[in-house]
Design a protein around this nucleic acid. Structure first.
Lengths: 310, 310
DNA sequence: AGCTGTAAGTTACATATGTTACGCCGATGT
DNA sequence: ACATCGGCGTAACATATGTAACTTACAGCT
C-alpha cells in the first residue's frame, strides 16, 4: 500500500465516487489533510488528469495561450468556416456575443467602432438593449465613394441596436494629400471629432489586408493610390486606415500622412480595444497588431489563431 | 458562444489555469453560480473527464466494484505475482498493512486469527505495536500433526507483534467423529473457548481450497478423510475448517460435524471479518464466501478479483 | 539515556464551493 | 392588456477545502 496506491485510491473515491475528503479520510483511516495532499499530489504527478473531450477544447487552449503570450484581456476563437465567405458572419456573431456580455455587464459607456463586413455583421447580431446611456462613435471617416459597408451605416446600426447616441466622424478617410490633411485636422471641429473618437472606453475594430479583396482597397483608398506601393513600403494591412508593417508600426508612405483618423498613440489609451478579424488574408496584419500591443481582445478564427501561435 | 463553448472554457480556466469559480465568473462575465453549474455540467456530460493514469487504477476500480456488489466494507487488491509461490507473501503484506492501519486507528480491541501461509506472512509483516490492550484469539483448533504453519504458531506471532494477550484454542480442529465432537464442545471449557473465539471485534482468516495443495488437506484433515469425498459432496473449499459449497453453505458431510470451530452463524456476528486469500485454487471458495456474506474485507490478488467480477 | 530533527497529527481558520430562498424580468398564453 | 410561469441573478448559508501554526511521536545521534 504505497503512496502511489493511496493516491489512486483516494482519487478514485473523490473523483469517481464523489466522496468528500473527510469521508475518504475516515474510510481510508487517514487524516483529512493527508487525503488533501494525496489528491493534490495525484493531480500534480499526473496520476489522475482532467482531459477535455470536446473539439472546442483546442480553441480554448489557444485562447489561453494567445492571452498569455500577448498580454490580452480576452480572446475569442470561432471555428474557421469552410466557406470563407462565412467568415464575417461567424466572426461578427462571436464579436456580437462578446460585446453583448460587456454591455450587459455595464462595462461599456462609450463605444468606438470601425467598419467592414465583420462589424456590419456584428451590429446585425447584437441583441437590442436599452439599458444604458451608451454613446457610439465612429472612429474613422466615411467613404467618399458608395459602398454597402459605409462607416456611417455601421455606426448607425450599432447605435440603433444599443439605443445609443450616435456620433459620426463626418470627414473623409483620406485627404487628397498630407498638407491638406494637416490643414483639415487643424480645424477645431475636426480636432474635436478625432478627440471624441478615442475618448471611448471600449472600441471594436477590424483590420484591413493588402490584397485586392480588401474593402479598403476596393472602396476606401484614394483613386490614384496603388496597393502595390503600400506593400512595397512594407505594409501588411491597415488599422484605422493606417498601414502598418509587420511590427505593427506605421509605414513611411504619404497615404499614412493623408489619413483622417485618431493617432495610434491616442488609440492606445483606449482601455478595451477589441479587434475582430480572421481569415488567411488578415493573418499578417493581425500578428502585427498583436506585436505592437494594439489589441486587448482578439476575436478570430481557429486557423488564424493556430497560425498566430506557430 | 453556445453552452458547450462556455462549459469548455470555464472548465479550462478551472482545471487548467486553476482559477476559482468566482474569478472565472468575473472573467467570463457570468455569475458564480452559473460557472458552478457549467463546471458540474461539463463533468456530468463528459466534456471534461478525469482519467486515471496508473496501473493501480484498475485495481482501485475493481475494489470499488467488489465493495459495491457484495456490500463489503473494504477490498484490497494486490498485483498477482508471476510466481504463485509469492502469493502468500504479497497477500500477507497487504493484509498486514491493512491490519496495521486498523490497529493504529484503535479499531482493533480483540483479534481473531486463523492459520495458513498467508496469515503466517501477515504476522511476520505486521509492524510491532505496543499501544493498545489488544487480545488475540485463535479461531481454530490446533493441528494434531506437526506443520510449519500451526495455528498455535500463528496466533503466538500475532500476539507478539501486537504485544497482545494470546489466547489459544486448545483443541484439535477435528474430532474423530460427530458424536465425539458433540461431547467435546459440550464441555464448558471448550464451549467457553469457542465463545471467546467469536467474541472478537476483528478477525483475519484465509480460506482453504480442495486441491492437493491445500494445507488443510496436507496437514489438517483426519487421516481417513478423502478430499474427493468432500468435492463429491459439493465442497469448493473451507472456512474455519468447515467445508462450503459454491453458495457458501456448509456441505452435508460428516467432517463438518466433526469440526471444532465456531459456528458460521456465530462467526457472522463479528463486526469486521477480513479474509485474505488469492490465487487460482481459491477462486471458488472466495466467491462462495462472498455469496453467503461471510466477508467484510477481502484481500486478494488482481486476477482473482477480475475473475470474481466476471 | 537524553537530545534533536523530521515527519505526521491536531486544531483552527480563511476561502472556496454547492445549494437554497427569494425576487425580478421577460416570455407565453388567454 | 394582463396574469402566470419559468429562468436567471442576488444574497445568504452550510459545507468542504486548503493552509498555517502548533503539538506529538518517532528515529537517529551523541
Amino acid at each position: 500500500m504505497l503512496n502511489q496506491q493511496l493516491m489512486v485510491k483516494a482519487s478514485w473515491f473523490y473523483h469517481v465516487e464523489g466522496l468528500t475528503q473527510a469521508q475518504i479520510a475516515d474510510r481510508m483511516l487517514l487524516t483529512r489533510r493527508r487525503v488533501n495532499e494525496l489528491l493534490a499530489a495525484a493531480l500534480q504527478q499526473g496520476i489522475v488528469r482532467v482531459s477535455f473531450n470536446s473539439p472546442l477544447a483546442d480553441s480554448v487552449e489557444m485562447e489561453a495561450e494567445l492571452c498569455r503570450r500577448h498580454g490580452l484581456t480576452d480572446v475569442v476563437i470561432v471555428p474557421t468556416p469552410n466557406d470563407k465567405a462565412q467568415m464575417p458572419l461567424v466572426l461578427g456573431r462571436a464579436a456580437a456575443m462578446f460585446l453583448d456580455q460587456m454591455v450587459h455587464a455595464g462595462k461599456v459607456q462609450s463605444l468606438g467602432v470601425g467598419w467592414g463586413a465583420t462589424l456590419r455583421e456584428t451590429a446585425h447580431q447584437l441583441t437590442p438593449t436599452n439599458s444604458a446611456d451608451i454613446k457610439v462613435h465612429s472612429m474613422m471617416g466615411g467613404l467618399t465613394r458608395g459602398s454597402e459597408v459605409n462607416t456611417f451605416e455601421i455606426v448607425r446600426r450599432f447605435a440603433k441596436r444599443l439605443n445609443a447616441e450616435c456620433h459620426y466622424l463626418a470627414a473623409p478617410i483620406y485627404a487628397d494629400d498630407p498638407a491638406s490633411r494637416d490643414t483639415i485636422i487643424a480645424q477645431s471641429v475636426f480636432a474635436a471629432l478625432l478627440r471624441d473618437a478615442v475618448d471611448v472606453n471600449v472600441c471594436l475594430l477590424s483590420v484591413g489586408d493588402v490584397t485586392q479583396e480588401s474593402l479598403q482597397v476596393r472602396y476606401g483608398l484614394p483613386t490614384r493610390t496603388e496597393i502595390s506601393e503600400l506593400v512595397g513600403a512594407g505594409a501588411v494591412g491597415d488599422l484605422l486606415g493606417r498601414y502598418l508593417d509587420q511590427d505593427g508600426c506605421e509605414i513611411d508612405h504619404p497615404l499614412n500622412r493623408q489619413v483622417i483618423s485618431p493617432e495610434l498613440e491616442e488609440y492606445r489609451n483606449i482601455p478595451c480595444r477589441i479587434i475582430a478579424s480572421g481569415g488567411f488574408n488578415k493573418r499578417q496584419i493581425i500578428r502585427a497588431c498583436l506585436a505592437n500591443d494594439l489589441v486587448d481582445v482578439l476575436v478570430t478564427d481557429s486557423e488564424t489563431a493556430s497560425w498566430l501561435l506557430m
